[in-house]
């Protein structure tokens, strides 16, 4: 599974994307975010407040209870500020 980070999540985590293989008990976005927190102190800090983290799967906005699978492109980012 490919995970992409944007804006301050990217700067805190230190990479723009990474390939990860979460354990089978990770079945949704919320579970993935919890699991990613254990990868480094930067991950833990960036993902500490899940209320300000939004997600997309395969380039569509999704809520945290949306399922994730091995072939997905998952993006995590702060609320968008375009326009």
């Amino acid at each position: 599974m490919k995970v992409l980070y944007f804006a301050w999540l990217r700067s805190k985590i230190g990479v723009a994307s990474e390939d990860v293989t979460p354990p089978p008990e990770v079945t949704d976005v919320g579970g993935l975010v919890e699991w990613l927190k254990g990868r480094s102190p930067g991950h833990a800090e960036a993902l500490a407040n899940a209320a300000v983290v939004k997600a997309a799967i395969n380039r569509e906005h999704v809520p945290f209870d949306h399922p994730v699978g091995p072939g997905d492109e998952v993006a995590l980012f702060p609320p968008v500020t375009g326009g």
């Binding site: 804006a7 980012f77 968008v80 500020t81 375009g82 326009g83």
Partner: peptide
């Protein structure tokens, strides 16, 4: 809608 849905971030 663009302001809340298009994935842009401003620094």
């Amino acid at each position: 809608w663009l302001k809340t849905r298009a994935p842009f971030w401003k620094l």
